[in-house]
Design a protein around this nucleic acid. Structure first.
Lengths: 231, 231
DNA sequence: TCTTTATGAATGAAAG
DNA sequence: CTTTCATTCATAAAGA
């Protein structure tokens, strides 16, 4: 593998404009990654279901499950390529920070363009980056306040809950059975932990697609091994 | 592995300060396609099997859901308690994307109901969710276009240059937020020559899956769409 | 290296 | 519909 990589790499470098074949864009690659991850997860889910169903009957499901786990499961949700992300240069950061501090909480599309133009003199950047940055900046500073200023300890929780529930003004013309449990309090740590949560399934099928839990085996990437199988 | 990739990336970036470096041979691409197709087929089969098993063993979806949920909790731990918003199942997502791609941009209340009904077979969902999904999907795809269409006006810089160059490599619409760093994926021919059929299931009962032509039904031909989304 | 943290990006929901 | 918010995911950077 390594060797091949190196070779290809060299070829890549030397024949930059030449014939080797196929170029995938980041989007395509990312899409591919997602797609594979989705399938892997799907298979995982299904296998799990089979396992559950078959436990009392025969070995089929179990075996399938095991095999699957060995070959595919560890790869679920992993990345094929690392998605690269923008990182502001110190200078950009400084400028952004300054603008942010100026208070005008609403960067608005116009502003964004300006800012982006300005910042692009100091490094690669796009409007989306700026937009996201402000978005995140605002959200996080807000949360910080929230977390730091919960001096209103005890009864605030209840009040907050009621308040937020009242906020739910949307006329529910269409509502199924949903987890629209806007039990959303002001997510302080305290409230988050005492809350008797509703444990029942909402997405019975694939809840843990979002698993980020430190799986010790997460070494593997869904990459194609030399024999054409996934590992 | 990962590291190797990183190295490649760095090398690419520094040595020839150019971008787009994802290179695949035709065979590799083909292999990839096959592999994904196999995944799709497998999933289809598994779903079918699951349905059969479910009905046969007289298990309701709910029960399955509960059991599954339980096993999930034990394995994945804390997760489930904190979820408060709907997360589409991969399957649901696929379906949604497909519908969206079909162009009928106006999901009208009628449609929504239908779709919801359909999707509810694959997981907990409500009409509101579907409604929101389409809302967001449309808005965001629009924004993407908006971000991409405006031909680079500000060429004041190296980065801008790079950017436009970058865009040239993208035959299709691109995702708004991706604009910068690229990483390298190179697949060797060696890895591309094998049979995807070896993928995972060796169980006799499932063996027949492997003999299927991946493209048997169009649903099993997962290729990325032009806008980098799944369908 | 491996783990943890900070933060860019994605996205469901809701407001405007 | 468009914009914004809240939450979560993924990863670059920092720490051990």
């Amino acid at each position: 593998w390594q060797k091949q990589l190196q070779n290809n790499e060299k070829a890549d470098r030397t024949n930059n404009n030449m014939m080797f074949v196929k170029v995938m864009t980041d989007e395509q690659l990312e899409t591919l990654r997602k797609q594979i991850a989705v399938y892997a997860t799907l298979c995982d889910q299904l296998v799990e279901m089979h396992r559950t169903l078959s436990t009392h009957h025969d070995l089929t499901g179990v075996r399938v499950g095991n095999i699957y786990c060995d070959s595919l499961m560890t790869s679920a949700g992993q990345k094929i390529t690392s998605r690269q992300r923008w990182t502001p240069t110190p200078l950009q950061l400084q400028i952004l920070e300054r603008i942010f501090d100026q208070g005008n909480g609403t960067p608005s599309k116009e502003k964004i363009k300006e800012i982006t133009a300005e910042l692009s003199h100091h490094g690669q950047i796009s409007e989306t980056n700026v937009y996201n940055w402000f978005q995140n900046r605002r959200a996080r500073s807000k949360r910080k306040l929230q977390n730091n200023v919960p001096p209103t300890t005890i009864e605030s929780e209840v009040d907050a809950e009621v308040d937020s529930k009242d906020k739910k003004t949307r006329p529910e013309e269409l509502i199924g059975s949903q987890q629209q449990q806007h039990s959303t309090i002001i997510m302080t740590n305290a409230s988050a932990t005492n809350r008797p949560e509703k444990l029942c399934f909402q997405n019975p099928e694939l809840q843990y697609l979002n698993n980020q839990h430190p799986n010790k085996n997460n070494k593997s990437d869904p990459i194609f091994t030399s024999d054409g199988t996934l590992r």
